[in-house]
Design a protein around this nucleic acid. Sequence first.
DNA 1: CATTTAATGATAATGGTTTTCATTTTTAAT
DNA 2: ATTAAAAATGAAAACCATTATCATTAAATG
Lengths: 152, 152
Amino acid sequence: MMGRGRGAWWQDRFADRGARITAPREVVLEILQETDDHVTAADVYVKAHERNPSIGLTTVYRTLDMLTQMGIVQKFDFGDGKARYELVNNPGGKKHHHHLVCLRCKAIVDYTEFLDDELEFIGKTQQRLSKKYDFDITDHAISFYGVCARCR
Amino acid sequence: MMGRGRGAWWQDRFADRGARITAPREVVLEILQETDDHVTAADVYVKAHERNPSIGLTTVYRTLDMLTQMGIVQKFDFGDGKARYELVNNPGGKKHHHHLVCLRCKAIVDYTEFLDDELEFIGKTQQRLSKKYDFDITDHAISFYGVCARCR
DNA sequence: CATTTAATGATAATGGTTTTCATTTTTAAT
DNA sequence: ATTAAAAATGAAAACCATTATCATTAAATG
Ligand SMILES: [Mn+2]
Ligand SMILES: [Mn+2]
Ligand SMILES: [Zn+2]
Ligand SMILES: [Zn+2]
């Protein structure tokens, strides 16, 4: 159960891992929950620093890393030299989805249409690949690349 | 065979773009054709330097960039901090394919099984996305992530 | 409270990639 | 072939996102 007063959905996951729930970590989670963007570590740092100037960039990196390993956050590289992070499967937020990337302006579209079809298909393929290559597959990414309307 | 004199399949593409066919560029293409790996710029540089010590790392980067923009090479980021490059659609070489990545040892498997199914599915989705989001889609990537047998 | 361990942040270091710029090579024109 | 213009090259420096160090602080434990 994830109740216990103002407990948040991710706090149990921290407990499981023996990770402490600290102020900087809470701030990072808050920020991630309040945006729909694909933010960089620097993006997060700026916002975190507004709320609590004592929070350092290093800790932002460390927290994002940890969240990524815990599967709470997904890390992407869309080819502009900076890693981008996005909360995944948070209740009331975005669900698992795939991406459409403009190669010119780097705009990113989260698309959720057709996802049912895709996921069914992905599931099947994943099973076949797991077996054939003896992989323990835990995740996947699908991205389409092209040029958006405004860039053309 | 294959056109005017010492022509190679990519030379026409260079001409179209007004790009000059130089010794360093030829070497880079040769190297890319001789490997099945997903090479880094440094990888290419080392091999290029063996054949012609005057070739510099900068030119390797510039050439790989150019080839990427021309669609002759595909650039990947598998999360180890270095970009990786792979020749795409070269006659007699690898065809379009998707990837299976081990999150531990970073091993990369090119899989081509099930590709017919996948490509049919991708085509359909691509069409739907193009229309809905008014994107001129030219490419896509599918990657599965997990842990390989040896790492487990 | 005392003890132990985890987390933090300022700073420095790292390392892949890009910029700069003087020089060389290629192409086009004469 | 000579020359002039444009493109390509490479050594070195600059860049910049990310990581490692390490002294300090905060949190859990009992
Ligand atoms: Mn997204
Ligand atoms: Mn491949
Ligand atoms: Zn665009
Ligand atoms: Zn592995």
